[in-house]
Amino acid sequence: MKNLNLLLAGVFFCVAAVWTGLLVTAQVQLGSLGRAPAEEGGPLFPAREPGLAIQGRAVYLDLGCVACHTQQVRPAGQGSDIARGYGVRPSVARDYVLQPQVLLGQRRVGPDLANYGARAKSDAELAAFLAAPAAGVSHPPYAFLTAERSAALVAYLKSLRQDYSSPEAKLKQ
C-alpha cells in the first residue's frame, strides 16, 4: 500500500459506501414521510406545535435539557419504556417529521419526555416544579427563568405527545 492515490481511494470508498448505504438509503426510505391520518379521513398527525411551544423548544435547547432527557419510546422487548408509562405505543419515524431538530437524546438522568404532554401536571404546577423542585428530586432549580420563558418551556413540554394513532403504530382500542 505504497500508492497514495490508492490509499485515498480506498478510504474514500469506505466512507462513501457507508454513507450511501446508511444515510442515503435512510433518506430515501424516510425522507418523504409527512403528516398522515391513522385512518382515511381522520385528523393529520403529528400535530403542529403552537407558537409558544416553538419558543419553548428554544428554551429547552438553550438550557441543555437534552443532556438528561430522551424523547423516544422504545418498543416492548427493547426496554421497559411502555411498562414504565413513558408512552402508550412505541415512537415511530413519522412522529418526528415536523421537528426542526430531532431531540432523541442519549441519556436518561430524568424521565423520557416523548409523551410527557399526556401525563403532565397543570401549567402552574409544572412551572413551580421547574423553578423549585421538591426536596429530594434530582432536578436542578431553574429559578432564573423569566415568567415568559418558563411559560414557553411549559407549553413546549405539554406539546410533546405521542398518544395518537399513526399508520405505523395504531393505538390499541
Binding site: G10, V11, C14, V15, A17, V18, W19, G21, L22, A26, Q29, L30, Q72, R74, P75, Q78, G79, P90, S91, V92, A93, D95, Y96, L104, Q106
Partner: peptide
C-alpha cells in the same frame, strides 16, 4: 477498521424510530 467503524453507527440507536 475503516470499513466497519461507520457502518456500526446504527447500533447506537437500537430501539429508536429508525428502520
Amino acid at each position: 477498521l475503516f470499513l466497519f467503524a461507520g457502518l456500526g453507527a446504527p447500533a447506537a440507536l437500537l430501539g429508536a424510530p429508525i428502520p
